[in-house]
């Protein structure tokens, strides 16, 4: 598996798009630091961009990589290699090269600004961890869609729809639910509903870490009570972990039963 991973990783690392992605984060990080002149504020602004953008990029790269390397995958399948290793290797190659672009791109400007000597270091690290998780999760979901969908156009469509659903529509429905049932106690419902969407979960995790939950009113207080504690933090990281592991497991299960 490591060999496949190595080659997928190099293949992607050397493609133009990885550099564009890296350059984008470099620029975004530098500009935000320059404009805000404040680490915490830069982290908040970055969060707003990252929780939407990393899933989108993970989805698109995942689906494109799978489809564009399909014939090559067939070549690999005819080699004496376990199926599982081929698909896991490719998946990790994509996910890790995207994560590397993200971490390096955001790392350089923040380190240069002196993040290590600042109180915002943990917020910043939380941000990077959740962004990496989101990349892992959405690349895995995209691979799942690609494995199950032969037609590239359909697969691409489903993947974008999934992203749109998680990033936008889910929140809309969630909000609508809150408004319609505003007479009932909804704290637990909203807590649970948050856990079912990795993007929301990441956003709230970072917001609460930044200690601006007071802005969110009573619900914010409930969330703070849950996510703000160590237990809440571990549970939500655990849920993110489950969100990543489940689709990865399904990549293996699906690919073992598929005809090529």
């Amino acid at each position: 598996m490591l060999k496949i991973l190595k080659y997928s990783f190099y293949d992607l690392i050397r493609s133009r798009w990885s550099y564009v992605y890296l350059a984008f984060y470099l620029l975004l990080g530098s500009v935000l630091l320059f404009l805000n002149n404040d680490l915490s504020k830069a982290v908040i602004t970055l969060m707003n961009v990252i929780v939407v953008l990393t899933p989108l990029i993970g989805t698109i790269f995942g689906i494109m990589y799978y489809y564009s390397s399909r014939e090559f995958t067939e070549l690999l399948l005819a080699q004496p290699i376990k199926r599982r290793n081929i698909f896991l290797g490719q998946y990790l190659g994509v996910a890790l090269s995207l994560s590397a672009s993200l971490i390096i791109g955001l790392g350089i400007p923040f380190v240069a600004y002196g993040i290590f000597y600042s109180g915002a270091i943990w917020d910043y690290i939380t941000l990077l961890i959740t962004a990496t998780f989101l990349t892992l999760i959405f690349t895995a979901l995209a691979f799942n869609i690609a494995i199950s969908t032969e037609n590239r156009i359909k697969g691409f469509g489903y993947a974008i729809l999934l992203w749109l659903f998680m990033a936008v529509i889910y929140d809309g429905i969630f909000l609508l639910g809150l408004v319609m049932f505003s007479e009932y106690p909804l704290e637990n419902f909203s807590l649970i509903a948050t856990l079912f969407n990795p993007i929301d979960l990441s956003r709230i995790l970072i917001l609460l870490k930044l200690d601006i939950s007071a802005l969110m009113g009573y619900t914010g207080a409930v969330f703070q009570k849950f996510f703000g504690t160590n237990q809440g933090l571990f549970i939500s990281l655990g849920v993110l972990f489950v969100w990543a592991i489940t689709p990865i497991w399904r990549i293996v299960a699906k690919s073992n039963k598929k005809d090529f």
Partner: peptide
């Protein structure tokens, strides 16, 4: 598969 060499119909490489 160590015993088999295979040449697929469509050659498409990275």
């Amino acid at each position: 598969r160590f015993n088999i060499d295979y040449m697929p119909q469509i050659a498409n490489f990275p």
